[in-house]
Design a protein around this nucleic acid. Structure first.
Lengths: 335, 335
DNA sequence: CTGAAAGCGCTTACAG
DNA sequence: CTGAAAGCGCTTACAG
């Protein structure tokens, strides 16, 4: 079985007594083929066990129906939800998704971009690694195929973008804590050089300014946007001579590490210290205790990214779009 | 930029003053090209901005370097870890991964199989949907390309398989609960017809038999292997006239729903009722309270699946392999 | 060590 | 409504 050669369109044509052009048109459901011929061809396809060879079709038609989606980490719930959104929309439109995971490595990202372009993807959705360089940006700007950036904006990238309003998200989170009377709020986790970190920082500052309070830089500790990052950051900040009374976390994942660290120090979130996360991943609801967090909408971001890419691939409207979804505060038991 | 035609190998050859055969060999690092020629060609590639067209190469060489991986749900941590394992190994071997998600739908799975075969993937790793039919099995058995099944075994599928010993996993979990003195243990979540459910059931029964106890069928409630499924199942089982004193959950995800449901009924896990999960996903450690669970090794399963597939794709040793990893009990605070 | 020629399996104008 | 011919951009024997 394995070694038997694949039946070709040519053989189908011969078997059905028509030309290859006709078979090709039948396969692609071209309406200008008569019902009788269509049936004849499908019969031959069935009896011969013909399998369409997209590789050949792609070469000839110069388009593959494949869209590359590059993300930083699929094990992150925010990302996997984002992916599901993008994939659903893309598949509905008839595209196949080629997935790449960078694990936040820029060189991995560069390699993936190359591979995907060599595979002639029709378009790309990129959730950029946080340390993406100028070179990456330049490359993205010069890409011969449509691309949409998601979740993280890149400086000087002249690109369509879909993400959420991180400034506002951080702002409403910190404002909430300030209104509860906190004056010393920590900001833990996330890579300081990334746009996602910087924008949250801006929201953080904005809330402090409006409250006419001064923030303490020693309560700001960055690190990897992971559970471990949160754990390490909270351990550090608790050693501060004047520790915080509340913590704003870069993400729910970071918050999960923070909760772990707090438990180790016998501090009860929501009682001894208030915590707010970011993302509203499903698990945040069953953290111990359930986490107050900022809801971003990963599936919607995925959907939107795919929709915009689809427009870029099919229409010839080159106007750039920048879509910013608005976050919401979800108050639970940690604040 | 977008509309400029892609530079072809032919143009590179002309620019470098060699034949296309030579350029082709240079690109693929064939050692029988002299250093001088190689350099000349690479210079031309750089100045012209040539991009290798894998679609054309694939057609001619009749192999794509693409491996299809089909899973039931990427938002599930067990699966995403499995995927990372498979992807790492595959990428190291030079393959590109085409990902498909079935969301446990058999028709989706069939479509994905078709798409991937049409795209001429060199091999497939399939984490089958639980309700896969005989037809699917037959199709898989007749596949013209190498395939490895993972995580869920299919009856009569004459396939290589990598998974863990679910019987033993359930056995050690239930034995642990019995040793703690429990006599009424519930088994919640999971699809009754799936091999993963059935094998856990067998382990469950085995533990009861060895303890010379009789199990109560009314404490066995199946359902979707999700958080919601767990929530619903625990709600049902608590209405039992004679409710269980301990619960064995199909998965950690199910357990998370069970914990939620228990909280609603003001029952404290580990105190009022004991809980054991299955999978040891990272989150289980920070559930409230931290979950006792059975550790399966999703990344290792991914790695192994990829390794076996790689052997099938490259060597001509047709001997079937069936690899069963051994699970471990991780005791935390819910028991 | 390198080149000329054929061909992978489709789709695409074009002709009728 | 259908067919004959060319060609997408590579790789593959084969020759020298």
């Amino acid at each position: 079985m394995s070694k038997k050669h694949r039946v070709t369109l040519h053989e189908v044509a011969e078997h059905a007594g028509v030309s290859t052009s006709t078979v090709s048109l039948v396969i692609r459901n071209n309406p200008r083929i008569s019902e009788a011929t269509r049936k004849k061809v499908f019969d031959s396809i069935d009896t011969l066990g013909y399998v369409y060879d997209r590789v050949a079709a792609n070469l000839r038609s110069q388009s593959t129906g494949i869209v590359g989606v590059i993300v930083t980490d699929i094990a992150n719930k925010f990302i996997s939800e984002f992916l599901i959104g993008a994939q659903n929309t893309l598949e509905q439109a008839g595209y196949t998704v080629l997935l790449g995971t960078t694990f936040a490595s820029v060189s991995k990202q560069d390699k993936l971009l190359s591979t995907m372009i060599e595979h002639r993807v029709d378009g790309l959705i990129l959730n950029p690694a946080s340390k993406s360089t100028e070179k990456t940006v330049e490359r993205i700007n010069n890409l011969p195929i449509p691309i949409v950036l998601a979740n993280r904006e890149l400086d000087d990238a002249n690109c369509d973008y879909v993400g959420i309003d991180y400034v506002k998200g951080a702002y409403i989170a910190v404002k909430h804590l300030l209104e509860k009377g906190h004056k010393r709020i920590a900001y833990l986790g996330g890579i300081k050089s990334s746009s996602t970190w910087i924008e949250r920082m801006r929201g953080f500052q904005l809330a402090y300014e409006k409250a006419e309070l001064k923030l303490d830089e020693s309560l700001i500790i960055d690190g990897p946007p992971t559970r471990e990052g949160g754990f390490d950051a909270v351990s550090k900040v608790l050693q501060n001579g004047n520790p915080p009374t509340a913590i704003f976390c870069f993400s729910d994942l970071v918050a999960s590490g923070v909760l772990q660290g707090l438990a180790l120090h016998k501090l009860t979130p929501g009682v001894d210290i208030d915590i707010v996360g970011f993302d509203n991943i499903p698990d945040s609801e069953i953290y111990h205790p359930p986490l107050t967090t900022v809801s971003s909408f990963p599936r919607s971001i995925g959907n939107k990214s795919a929709t915009i890419l689809y427009e870029k691939m099919t229409k010839s409207s080159p106007e750039k779009q920048r879509i910013i979804l608005q976050p919401e505060l979800i108050i639970r038991e940690t604040s």
